[in-house]
């Protein structure tokens, strides 16, 4: 191997030196126009060379992607016919992709649909929402203020209510006490009537008690009646006196 390489080097060296020392020089004609050969034949040849150069063993689509080209020139599936795919191709590979950029914007139908969606999703404008929020806040504030006022009014009356309640309790207690006293008094009276200690559950005792109670009730009623009459009389007198004075 080594030997072989060396011979190659030697050969080129020799050739190079031969050129250098050759007496006839190659004449380069500068005035000739440079012709680019683009006939079908050369193209095919170039393509052939390119194909041979591609030793990546990638599929054509992957080879395209790696070389920053769109993978498929012709659609391979239904997805490749969609607007979304075309937009993506334009976004990724630019004008080279051959996609018309006007596809990037929504169509009239899309706009209509979007507007319809927005009308449902955002039913209120900012101003309306602000007004609603302000109103709600105001209402909350007013509720609190109203409650504060109510409490203040109630606190102002608190002393009076306390007094009333205490009076009521005291009155009730006094009434209960009076009733108890009365009962005790009656029982005592009845006991004195019998002159000896008698069991309050005794029939005779109960009879006597009922009788005594009846009497007392009668007395009370009479007293009430008398008081009423007296009052009426006084009123009448006053009235008659009043009329008399008016007549005078």
């Amino acid at each position: 191997m080594n030997l072989c390489l060396r011979t190659k080097c030697l050969k080129s060296n020799i050739l190079g030196s031969l050129y250098r020392y050759s007496t006839t020089t190659e004449v380069v004609e500068k005035n000739d126009p440079v012709l680019i050969d683009d006939s079908d034949e050369t193209r095919a040849k170039d393509a052939e060379i390119e194909k041979k150069r591609n030793i990546s063993r990638l599929s054509p689509a992957h080879f395209n992607v790696v070389n920053d080209r769109r993978p498929y020139e012709i659609p391979k599936s239904l997805a490749h016919l969609t607007v979304k795919y075309h937009r993506k191709m334009y976004g990724k590979y630019g004008m080279e992709s051959g996609v018309n950029p006007s596809l990037c914007w929504p169509s009239k139908k899309d706009i209509e649909e979007k507007l319809e969606y927005e009308a449902v999703a955002y039913p209120f404008t900012i101003k309306e929402m602000m007004e609603t929020a302000a109103k709600r806040r105001q209402e909350e504030k007013e509720t609190i203020l109203k409650r504060d006022r109510d409490i203040a009014a109630k606190v102002a009356k608190l002393d009076q209510w306390k007094k009333e309640l205490n009076d009521k309790i005291a009155k009730k207690a006094a009434e209960v006490q009076a009733a108890k006293d009365r009962k005790e008094r009656i029982v005592e009276e009845v006991r004195r009537h019998f002159g000896f200690k008698l069991d309050p559950r005794d029939e005779r005792f109960q009879e006597m008690l009922a009788k005594r109670e009846k009497e007392l009730k009668k007395q009370e009623k009479q007293a009430k009646k008398d008081a009423k009459e007296k009052l009426m009389l006084a009123k009448l007198q006053q009235k008659s006196a009043g009329i008399g004075e008016a007549q005078k």
Partner: peptide
């Protein structure tokens, strides 16, 4: 890279409007 036109920003929801205004 998706090749879409930039959309509009949407307005805030009603429960956030107080904060953002």
């Amino acid at each position: 890279e998706s090749g879409q036109a930039i959309p509009r920003r949407m307005i805030p929801p009603p429960d956030a409007i107080e904060y953002y205004t």
